[in-house]
Amino acid sequence: MSVTTLKSGSMLERVLVSGKFAVTSELGPPKSADVETIKEKAACLKGVCDAVNITDNQTAIVRMSSIAAGVLAMREGLEPVIQITCRDRNRLAIQADVLGAYALGIRNILCLSGDHQRFGNHPTSKNVFDMDSIQLVNVLKRMRDDKVFACGDEIRNSKKAPLVAPEIFIGAAANPFGDPFPFCVTRLGKKMRAGADFVQTQCIYDMDRFRRWMEMVRDRGLHEQIYILAGVTPLKSLRMAEHMRDNVAGLSVPDHLIERMKSAADPKEEGEKIAVEQMQELRDIPGVAGIHIMAIEAEKSVAGLAEKAGLLPRPIVD
């Protein structure tokens, strides 16, 4: 594919379009106005991945805005993937933020429904959900490709002014473990048709179910129309493994992994070993275009994991 066909020109897009195996990771903004934490986390991730997701009030806990934290991360040499949830903003606010994010240099946006506010630190708040994540994907696609807002107005200052639309590489999430299971693939297809260029999956522990999901994805030919980045979260302890299994809706941790964590002399090391094995296995599954490493509040461990999984050095694609 020639450079002229790029939609956003982001590094993540260039790596994926060039057919190279992509690596993304995650950086959670601070629960304060502290900039140093972002610098520290960014230093751990620089050169280790092609782009880094900047979460948007994840688990419905107030944090620094994803756009602001993303710009700060960009100053540290990272390429951000700004997450936008539908929970906190309506279509006016989101479109305004997309224009602002693009003007500040952001080229990747990931569209999410958002965790329900009941789980966070403002459970008495009012949610928005003016649109859902699939509709948000489509709003971004129309902004980029048709150069219009959701209302149909052209993205220009006046009738005579030039069209200046945000050229964004559009992402979404995919959950291969949600219910109803057949609908998980339907959702992926809808996201693709709505305009998503890539998806990152929920963290994968149940490899058998993920393989079945990928088979369904390939049967529909979706892997050829959307880049699929497989999600990996290293287990840090037996408690974490059990918590993931018991308390995180739509996520299963198979018994053999629980057993390994239980009998390990050093559970943290074992968790990382499992993650490396998973990444190597995922890489060989047809249709998987990259890995999304979500080391929750453990950005320091990402470089080591990527190294051991043979994902380094990251390519530079012009």
Binding site: F129, I134, Q135, F183, T186, A249
Partner: peptide
């Protein structure tokens, strides 16, 4: 979440994540 295009990732065993 008043989603119009399918369930969120929190649907498990027919139950809502909330």
């Amino acid at each position: 979440k008043s989603l119009l295009n399918g369930p969120c990732g929190g649907s498990a065993d027919g139950r809502c994540e909330i």
